[in-house]
Structure formats: structure tokens, C-alpha cells
Design a protein around this nucleic acid. Structure first.
Length: 585
RNA sequence: CGGGAUGUGGCGCAGUCCGGUAGCGCGCUUCGUUCGGGACGAAGAGGCCCCCGGUUCGAAUCCGGGCAUCCCGACCA
């Protein structure tokens, strides 16, 4: 490709509203342009890179038995109504009417379509296991797109769906994806860690998220370097510091003026926060049958911990949780700031599993300015649910090995779910097993966002001058910069490289050297050839890796083979990172 | 959905407080000079100042109402 003909332009200044480095560089280098919030055009350089990323995905999916299909972006709403997600999902789903007034859906994912295909195509256990995938546009009307391609509303996703006759088969395909996903990320030059994650509204029994660790990430992860435990904070467990065993003392009400927070209370009584019980008031939306009802949730954790809303929502099987209003708190007989599970009515009481082990806590008295001493679970009150509802944080003890964990932020670049039969049950996607019995097909679903992965590549591989793209996914392998006016050596090299199958971006523009070098650094192709009179005098041209300062002079006759050798070398460097990763639950 | 900010040629910004019909840098076009890390000179092109309404002799500027974009939070199948 001649740069004089390249559709996109580079920009000296990043748009004022770009904050993260991947966004700035991808815009400046001419990869992407924004149309609206979370909606982008992908210009030729991005398109070529995404095609390469997609081809890596195809190779890895095909290698584990995947068959590529293309499913529609526009769905009739019927199948979404059948699985209930038409009703469950809110404004994030794109809905419209066709000309006949029928409800239509813009695809946010494809479980429904897959299950519909399965009920039409799969009749027999002989057709299983199977796995289909596609690389297709998704629309999710996210309330808050951000950070360039990190979080968008319209995006391309590689999503695959495993279909099995039994749970062992699902486990096998799940594990195959587990490794294939690491291969994809490594081949794209993005280091990823797999963490256990919440299954959320997807349902199912197991899920992993692949995270690229970066401060700009939106998820918080708990990591243990000692034993390798990793988990999204939403579900991360930890060993809770145990309380000293004591005999239960008599309940006693005392005046504690102006102690609305746990810190105030602990200071006032001169006790550690671990000797107090913290009350958190939430309202949960819980589906009962076909109805959504709101229930007041009174959550109790020890004063030295905080509530994890995801764990709490899972403990009460809530679809949504929100903080309770003061009036609602008073209505159940509690008092904001002085809440106690003793004597409240019409509330679902959920206590953290550390509470029954912790005797003689100080808890509110449901009366402003008063607390109870020596509150004991079981004797003084009982809960509807006892579960782990506390959030893990920096320094908390690893649930596996007990060593301190630390937190990190991460961007979710992929996820894998064991779905089970939720969708196949709903759509009646069944097969006949060996015994002639009808059974639902068991599904898994697996997704990677292509654009988000590109953003993470840019986030990971750059310097102050621009992008430094991995050879495996760079739009072109070589940036050929011509500085010489007299010689036509560059034209010849361009022709020779193309004839040899090397992908070249040829800067044939009539510009100054500085502009060309800066553009080359900004776009970040892995190799740069500089054709200038300086090296031509010595009978050669310069060859330089973008990720290195040093260049070497290669004789004109050897440049093609030298480039091919460098490409092989850089490809080998990437492939060294593609290794088997032990499966961790 | 809460909180904050911004909207002025393709990009980055000034002008808005204090009203008088728009300016700078980059980029773009033409000519000349230059040519190894974002050159120089000369001459040009390009703007419904986000939209609608109001105040005023007169609005980019003041007032009201929208919309859009970004950031923080809530949310995220």
C-alpha cells in the first residue's frame, strides 16, 4: 500500500475527549474514527489488524473442532420472549419494529439463535458434540461507553457455542476453549489471566473471565502470587480473620450518642471494629414466578468487613439490588445508623458467615443513640440466609493458601460460560440419546470482543512515539520509508517485497524525513526500512525493528531475505508465549 | 439514572466574565526554496460559533429550554 493513497490520515493532536493511551493512539494513527458515543468506524489499518485477529480466532476455533457460521444481527423478538430475556433485559437491548409492527431485536448475543438452530438441526446424540462460532456485530446499548474501544455499544465479537449430550462433554469443550483463548490472546501479544467470575444472569455452573491487567480496567481482581488464586472481586473469597472464642454474655442496651458509623462506635466504646456488627440496608428485586417483587434485605457483616453486593444478590437470588431509602428502613422497624437485626419485621435477614462465629458483638438497638452489647447470633436473632457476603480486598487472606492477596484492575477481554440447558430447555432444543430418551442439549458459550482486544494490544504495546504492533496482527509487516529523491531503489524494494509476499506500507510521499519517521513510529508497524542516500552510498538500506533503537544496513540484494528473516524471528518470539496453561477452576 | 465538565473550519485551542458579526497553531491547495527525526517564504480555500426560542438597534458572548460528547459513580446479558 502506498501511503500517498492510504485513506486515513495521521493526526498530530489527539481529540480532546480521548483520555486513555489506546484511544489517543488509535485515533492519531488513523485506525479508528468515532461516529457517536461507543460507535466507531474502523479505517483500513484497523480493518486489516482486525482481520488478522479474527483469522487467529478462526484458526484456534477450528483447531478445537469449531465450525464457522454467520448468524443474523437482527432477530425477531419471538425467541427472546421464549427464553424470557426480552422481559429481563432492560434498556441495554436494542428494540424496534419492522414494517409490520413486529417486535425486533438487535443481537446482543446469540444464545437464542443458537438454541433455535439446534432445535431445528440437532435430532440425535450422533450429531453431538458440536461447536459453532461466528464473528459478528453485537449491539449493547451500554449506559456508559468509555475509553475509546475499551467499552463501546456496537462491536464485533467472536462468540462460540458448544453443544453436548452430557456434562462431561461440556467440560471437555469448556477446557478446550480455556486453552484456545490463552492461545488467541498470546498470539495477539496480550497477556491475560483467567479469573473465576460471577455467572450473573447468564446462569450456568461455571464461568471464567480473561482479564488484561491494567489500571484503566473497570473490574477489580483479587490475586494471590503464592498459590495462583485469581478471582473477580465480585466472587472472590477470602479467609476471614476469626474471632476469639468467648462465652456469650448477657444482652445489654447502652447509650452511644452520635455513633452513626462503625468507626465512631468503635472509637466511642474503645473496641476493635471486628467486635461490632455492621448493618446494610438494601432493596432487592426478586423474581417470583413471572412477577418481579421488591424485598427489603437486611444484611449484616462484621464491622471490619464490607458487603459485596454481587455475593449478596446471589445469596438472595436477586435480579437487582439498590440501597434502601431511609423511609423504607424505618418502615421495617430499624433505625438508620443504629440498625439491628433484633426485632425487625418484613425484612429478609442475611448475615455473613463470619457472624455466627463471632460472639458478643456490638449492634444497633434500632433506636437513635443506642446500641446493644453482647449480641449473639442464634440466641438474640436468626437470619433467613447465612452466606459469604463480605467483599475481599487488598491484604485479605487467600482462600486457598492463606497468604495475603492483592488487588489489580483489569479489562475483561473474553469470557467462557458453562450454560447448561437454560436456553435449550426454554426453546425445546432436544435430542434423542442412545436409549431413545429426549434430552436437552447442553450448551456452553464463549466470547471475545475483537475491538476491545485491539484496544488492549494498543494499551500494552506503545511508547511515547506511538504504537508498537506485534508482527502477528500488524496491518502491514514493513513500513518502507523513502527519503531519496534521486534513487528509485525504494520502488524496486517495494515491488520485490510484494512479490515475495511481504505486506508493505510504502511511504512514497513527498514529505520531509521527520514527518515520515514520526508517522512510521506512530502507526507502529513492526519493521521499518529506510531508503536514504546516506545508506545507499554504502550500497544498502536501513532495517530497524520498531521495538528496538538499533538499525542495521542491509545490502540491496539481501533486503528481501533479511526482512523475511526478521519476520520469522519476530513471529517466533510471539509463538514462544503460546504455551499450555494449567486449568484452574 | 445521579454528580461534574465541554460544545467555535478536518484536529488542537483562544475569544464568552465585560454584547458590536470570528481568530491562532497544525492540517489542506498552489508556487518557489529545502530534504535523515514533525523545514521556510509567498499566495489561497475552508466556519449554520451544537440546536430552538427569548432579551437587545445588534448575540459565539446574556437568559430559558433542548441535544450531543467526555469524566466520576450506579449499571454491565
Amino acid at each position: 500500500m502506498r501511503m500517498s493513497k492510504l485513506f486515513s490520515q495521521t493526526l498530530r493532536d489527539a481529540p480532546g475527549d480521548a483520555e486513555v493511551v489506546s484511544h489517543k493512539l488509535l485515533v492519531r494513527a488513523g485506525f479508528i474514527r468515532q461516529l457517536a458515543a461507543g460507535i466507531f468506524s474502523y479505517l483500513p489499518l484497523a480493518r486489516r489488524t482486525m482481520t488478522k485477529i479474527e483469522n487467529i480466532m478462526r484458526e484456534e476455533m477450528d483447531a478445537i473442532g469449531g465450525q464457522e457460521v454467520t448468524m443474523p444481527v437482527v432477530h425477531s423478538a419471538d425467541i427472546w420472549k421464549e427464553t424470557g430475556r426480552w422481559y429481563q433485559i432492560g434498556s441495554e437491548m436494542g428494540r424496534f419494529f419492522d414494517k409490520n409492527g413486529r417486535d425486533m431485536v438487535l443481537a446482543m448475543t446469540h444464545e437464542e439463535v443458537v438454541a433455535d438452530l439446534v432445535r431445528k438441526e440437532i435430532q440425535s446424540y450422533r450429531q453431538l458434540p458440536a461447536m459453532i462460532y461466528h464473528i459478528q456485530t453485537k449491539w449493547r446499548d451500554d449506559p456508559r461507553p468509555r475509553a475509546g474501544l475499551i467499552r463501546v455499544r456496537e462491536f464485533t465479537m467472536k462468540d462460540s457455542y458448544s453443544l453436548d449430550a452430557d456434562w462431561e462433554g461440556l467440560d471437555k469443550q469448556y477446557r478446550a476453549h480455556y486453552q484456545a483463548y490463552f492461545n488467541i490472546f498470546n498470539r495477539c501479544g496480550v497477556p491475560a489471566v483467567a479469573v473465576g467470575s460471577d455467572v450473573g444472569m447468564m446462569g450456568g455452573s461455571m464461568a471464567h473471565e480473561y482479564m488484561y491487567l491494567t489500571p484503566i480496567g473497570e473490574d477489580t481482581l483479587l490475586l494471590c502470587d503464592h498459590c495462583g488464586y485469581t478471582a473477580n472481586r465480585q466472587i472472590a473469597e477470602f479467609q476471614k480473620p476469626s474471632a476469639a472464642a468467648e462465652d456469650a454474655l448477657p444482652l445489654e442496651k447502652i447509650a452511644t450518642p452520635d455513633t452513626k458509623t462503625i468507626e465512631d462506635l468503635a472509637n466511642f466504646l474503645n473496641i476493635p471494629t471486628a467486635k461490632t456488627a455492621k448493618a446494610v440496608f438494601m432493596v432487592a428485586t426478586i423474581t417470583e414466578g413471572t412477577e418481579d417483587v421488591e424485598k427489603f434485605v437486611f444484611a449484616v457483616v462484621r464491622g471490619d468487613m464490607d458487603v459485596n453486593e454481587t455475593k449478596l444478590a446471589n445469596a438472595v437470588k436477586a435480579k437487582a439490588l439498590r440501597p434502601a431509602h431511609d423511609e423504607e428502613i424505618v418502615a421495617i422497624g430499624a433505625e438508620p445508623g443504629y440498625g439491628s437485626p433484633i426485632g425487625v419485621k418484613n425484612a429478609l435477614i442475611v448475615v455473613d458467615d463470619a457472624i455466627p462465629e463471632s460472639p458478643n458483638l456490638v449492634a444497633g438497638a434500632n433506636e437513635t443513640g443506642f446500641h446493644y452489647l453482647n449480641v449473639n447470633y442464634g440466641r438474640d436473632y436468626r437470619a433467613d440466609v447465612v452466606a459469604d457476603i463480605a467483599v475481599a480486598g487488598d491484604g485479605d487472606a487467600c482462600p486457598r493458601c492463606g497468604k495475603p492477596m492483592y488487588t489489580s484492575r483489569g479489562v475483561e477481554i473474553g469470557n467462557i460460560f458453562k450454560l447448561g440447558t437454560r436456553y435449550t430447555d426454554a426453546l425445546g432444543a432436544t435430542f434423542l440419546d442412545k436409549d431413545g430418551k429426549e434430552k436437552p442439549v447442553i450448551m456452553g458459550s464463549y466470547g471475545i470482543g475483537v475491538g476491545r482486544l485491539l484496544a488492549c494490544v494498543a494499551e500494552e504495546h506503545n511508547d511515547e512515539h506511538g504504537l508498537i504492533l506485534p508482527i502477528t496482527i500488524a496491518p502491514y509487516q514493513v513500513h518502507l520509508v523513502n527519503l531519496s529523491k534521486k534513487s528509485n531503489a525504494a520502488e524496486e524494494i517495494y515491488a520485490d517485497l510484494q512479490a515475495a509476499g511481504v505486506e508493505v506500507l510504502f511511504d512514497d510521499r513527498d514529505g520531509s524525513p521527520g514527518v515520515k519517521f514520526n508517522d512510521a513510529d506512530l502507526i507502529g508497524l513492526p519493521l521499518r526500512i529506510t531508503v536514504g542516500d546516506r545508506a545507499l552510498k554504502k550500497g544498502g538500506v536501513e532495517l530497524k525493528r520498531r521495538d528496538s533503537r538499533d538499525s542495521e544496513i542491509i545490502p540491496l540484494t539481501e533486503i528481501v531475505s533479511a526482512v523475511q528473516a526478521k519476520i520469522a524471528e519476530m513471529t517466533a518470539e510471539i509463538m514462544e508465549t503460546v504455551v499450555e496453561v494449567p486449568f484452574k477452576e
